[in-house]
């Protein structure tokens, strides 16, 4: 009997450990994603995303029917925003204020007042910036725009540089990895770099990388 119970117990521990080592993000009314951690991902209001623990970068906007009557209400999008936050082992909800009029939409674009809360209702801090595009807006290449955004010093940009590389590329010195006092790399830098290079990798490279991790365990 024990022989059966023990593996089940261990397995359940593993499963629960695995289940908690991730972030679940539910999108509130009107919120939709375009890019999730470097991948194109169109998730709409009501959907839940499963994210790996760590730094999260999303490209989101809010689409709502604006107008004072059903007949006169038409779909309109907010500005497109880049959200950057850290989260681990959490169940989160990202929501926007109720948007029903153009006035409310204009205020939201100005204030960028998303609410990011955990299961206990506590608000999480985040960095936010507007992903601006001039000219035709009909179909946008969010991945390309995000890449350019990440090269700017905006607070919501995911900035990264190789250790020892020149910090000449503007105001990005705080993101330059440094080596710990004992000569071992700083683990936060390692985490950031792993994430950075994962986001840079194409699908094939990512699969190879995942397989390598599996085989390295």
């Amino acid at each position: 009997m024990k022989a059966i119970v023990a593996p089940i117990f261990v397995l359940s521990l593993l499963v629960s450990a695995q289940a908690s080592a991730e972030v679940t993000l539910t999108l509130g009314p009107c919120v939709q994603t375009h890019v999730v951690n470097g991948d194109e991902k169109n998730a709409v209001s009501g959907e839940s995303l499963t994210l790996a623990n760590g730094t999260q970068q999303l490209v989101v906007d809010c689409e709502a029917m604006l107008g004072r009557s059903d007949d006169d209400a038409f779909p309109e999008s907010s500005e497109t925003f880049v959200l950057l936050f850290d989260a681990a082992d959490a169940v989160l909800t990202l929501s926007a204020p109720r948007l029903q009029t153009r006035q409310q939409m204009a205020a939201f674009n100005q204030q960028k007042d998303f609410r990011l809360v955990n299961a206990e209702g506590e608000a999480l801090s985040y960095q936010i910036g507007v992903l601006e595009k001039e000219g035709f807006q009909v179909f946008r290449d969010y991945l390309d725009e995000l890449e350019a955004f990440n090269r700017t010093p905006a607070p919501a940009a995911l900035r990264m540089q190789l250790p020892g590389a020149s910090a000449a590329a503007g105001n990005v010195t705080d993101a330059v990895p440094h080596v710990g006092e004992q000569g071992a790399p700083d683990q936060e830098t390692v985490r950031q770099m792993l994430r950075y290079w994962y986001l840079q990798a194409d699908r094939e490279t990512r699969e190879e990388w995942k397989n390598w991790i599996q085989s390295s365990k």
Binding site: C30, N42, E63, F74, P75, S77, V138, R140
Partner: peptide, 12 residues
Amino acid sequence: VSSVAAGSANAA
């Protein structure tokens, strides 16, 4: 009149 869903196209 609930919120609407859409793809990557920018509404309006």
